[in-house]
Write a protein that binds this DNA or RNA. Structure first.
Lengths: 208, 208
DNA sequence: GTCTATAAGTGGATAGAC
DNA sequence: GTCTATCCACTTATAGAC
């Protein structure tokens, strides 16, 4: 049963952090929600930060999987679409991390380093995908443009949900699709005419 | 002297919020820093949120000024450069708002509406500038691309400092220049060859 | 493993004297 | 306008019984 309670705490914490924001959820709230005592919670975790670290480890796994280069062949536009889905859904499932990213990272040196590592991997993957598109003759960009675009892809992916919230978007699930479109549109102007037009039409259909 | 103390509280709050993050600065900390009593602070402000609202009003003025269309003539690339400076410096001076944007907005309906208004103005201004470039023949983009790019400009500008912090950048001042470059590079692929090349070279010089 | 009880501290906020 | 004193609510975290 030890394992069970531990997992239940992690699951409830994740749900409550995502719903109410990590700063607004105390260890007591979590214990209340699960109808266990605060003492019990502290038997399983040293403190709130310990819970966050365990959730981060789960998230890290998800991201590492999503960022893995999918195949041996050159990636096409459809592969990117799929990979962006995996990334945005991982972010969505652990969106509390992103909502208060700077605050959470400022409190914990280990998480800071691990998050920087994820960003580094994402940057490399973005570069690899765009190099693939270039080699496939689908995309054309200077090396400075490619590097800048990779960075912009990361920023949009990282903060899109926050932007949607700040803008006051109602339908949060719709925000994921809109975010993917935004990232794709970063690539649009570098594409060959046929693909560029195709993307312009596709995105319109995707949002409605 | 009333006015003096009130202003001193606002100034100290801004400095401390920016340095330590708004959630980590209490009304007691502010009073301590100014060597006044907590009671005195509460004579001048109803509560912490009241202080934040007053600071937001200052920020709003700065942004409104920065987002004003500068002249009667069509804007060129240099105008954009200047305007981005004004915007990024306003954000820098009130960066505590952006560090915990979602959390701060979630607590205060009025700020939520006012921030959404700023975003709307920024979006309109981004559109106007890019329309100017298009009319001047410097830029070429479909209407879907233009809209997507305007949105991406806003996201990068809004969250660039957070991204720099998450990435672990040391020199925060340098981050402003890098942010401006990132936004400019969003426009690069839409530019006429001459300007596009010019920008590629310019940005390299700007970062070093 | 889980609970009860509680210590120790923090933050927001107010009353009333000066 | 400003200070002292203080209250209340809440949070983290631990000790010790079961």
């Amino acid at each position: 049963m030890a394992r069970q309670t531990r997992q239940r705490i992690l699951d409830a914490s994740l749900a409550m952090f995502n719903a109410q924001g990590e700063p607004n959820v105390t260890t007591n709230h979590i214990a209340d929600e699960l109808e266990i005592s605060p003492g019990n919670l502290y038997y399983h975790f040293r403190n709130k930060d310990d819970i966050i670290e365990q959730l981060f480890a789960r998230f890290e796994e998800r991201m590492d999987a999503a960022l893995a280069a999918p195949e041996g062949r050159l990636p096409g536009l459809e592969d990117i679409w799929l990979q962006l889905h995996l990334v945005f859904e991982a972010i969505w499932d652990y969106r509390f991390l992103y909502r208060d990213l700077v605050e959470i990272l400022s409190r914990n040196r280990r998480l800071r380093l691990r998050f920087a590592r994820i960003l580094k991997r994402a940057d490399e993957q973005a570069h690899a995908v765009m190099r693939g598109l270039s080699q496939g003759g689908v995309m054309r960009a200077s090396s400075a443009e490619l590097a800048a675009t990779a960075t912009n892809v990361l920023v949009i992916a990282t903060f899109w949900l926050n932007y949607a919230a700040a803008r006051g978007d109602k339908d949060e699930h719709q925000a994921i699709r809109a975010g993917i479109v935004q990232v794709m549109m970063l690539l649009a102007p570098f594409l060959r005419d046929a693909e560029r037009l195709h993307l312009n039409n596709l995105t319109r259909a995707y949002i409605d």
